[in-house]
């Protein structure tokens, strides 16, 4: 178990989302929103999650991701495997 905080995971997700989708509104990146709502297509979403896992050294088994997770749930899933 590492000492990763929710804030670290959230911030890393947000930074990668902005890298992958530069036109994304940073202010709209909120815990209760989904990446799709923010304008990320399916490939963008997979890329944002993959980059975040790599950066934080987390491996979430591929079957644990489901469509439609809001950002808070994505953070939870990642923290579970941190």
């Amino acid at each position: 178990m590492s000492d990763l905080t929710r804030t670290q995971v959230f911030d890393t997700l947000r930074r990668n989302a902005l890298d992958v989708v530069p036109e994304l509104d940073p202010a709209a990146f909120a815990a209760e929103r989904t990446l799709s709502e923010l304008g990320c297509n399916s490939i963008d979403r997979a890329e944002i999650v993959t980059l975040t896992m790599e950066e934080l050294g987390i491996v979430v088994p591929v079957h644990e991701f489901q469509q439609g997770y809001d950002i808070a749930t994505l953070v939870d899933v990642m923290l579970k495997h941190a």
Binding site: I43, A46, E47, V49, T50, L51, M53, E54, V59, V60, V62
Partner: peptide, 16 residues
């Protein structure tokens, strides 16, 4: 090398 570190880190756009 990213894949070898862990398959989970293969960039998601690789399939394309």
């Amino acid at each position: 090398p990213r894949y070898q570190r862990d398959p989970a880190y293969l960039p998601a756009r690789y399939a394309l």
